[in-house]
């Protein structure tokens, strides 16, 4: 049951992410991206990570997508059929397909097992998902958590430099 549900959600996610790249109209692409994010959020729920799912919906499907759609509408991007070299598309597609088959063949040959940690479903239900993330952030991943602040600062300074009309 669970694997069937996973397959359906995963199929929708892959399909909508393909639509993101192939849609000619940027608004359609953006909405397909929302769909992909929702499917990912669903997958997080099935993995017992409700906090991740909520964050995914609020931050990506909510805030970031609103921003993207706003930008598209403000810039008033005209829908232009981009001319593509058919040879290049054909060659790229052929190489891509070849590499995909190679990857699938390789994956089918070896084992695909992960290392199981101490966090199982019972543990997550008992302690709580947010508590576990918080604890990990302030113990094991304290330094990465702090580095993120530098990363964001550099990004903000960069955005101001590149986008501000007069500096």
């Amino acid at each position: 049951m669970e694997s069937i549900f996973f397959l359906i959600v995963a199929a929708v996610a892959v399909l909508s992410s393909i639509l993101v790249v192939t849609c000619k109209n940027p608004i359609n692409s953006a909405l397909s991206l929302v769909m992909t994010f929702f499917c990912l959020a669903t997958l997080y729920v099935t993995l017992d990570a409700p906090f991740m799912a909520v964050t995914q919906v609020m931050v990506y499907a909510g805030a970031i997508m609103v921003l993207i759609v706003f930008v598209i509408m403000l810039l008033n991007i005209r829908v232009e059929a981009v001319k593509r070299g058919s040879h290049a598309v054909f060659a790229g597609g052929a190489i891509g397909l070849f590499l995909l088959f190679q990857t699938v063949w390789f994956l089918g040959r070896g084992t695909l097992s992960g290392a199981t940690g101490t966090m199982d479903r019972a543990q997550v239900v008992k302690v709580g998902h947010i508590e576990l993330i918080g604890k990990a952030l302030f113990t094991d991943f304290l330094l990465p958590f702090e580095i993120t602040s530098i990363l964001l600062l550099a990004a903000i300074v960069g955005a101001v430099i590149l986008a501000k009309r007069k500096i």
Binding site: L143, P144, A154, A155, G158, L162
Partner: peptide, 22 residues
């Protein structure tokens, strides 16, 4: 830690993207 390496790379890259378009 792979996370530290990744974040270090991102701090570096974000700064470089901006510097390249400075």
């Amino acid at each position: 830690d792979l996370m530290v390496i990744f974040l270090g790379l991102e701090v570096l890259s974000i700064s470089l993207y901006v510097l390249a378009g400075f």
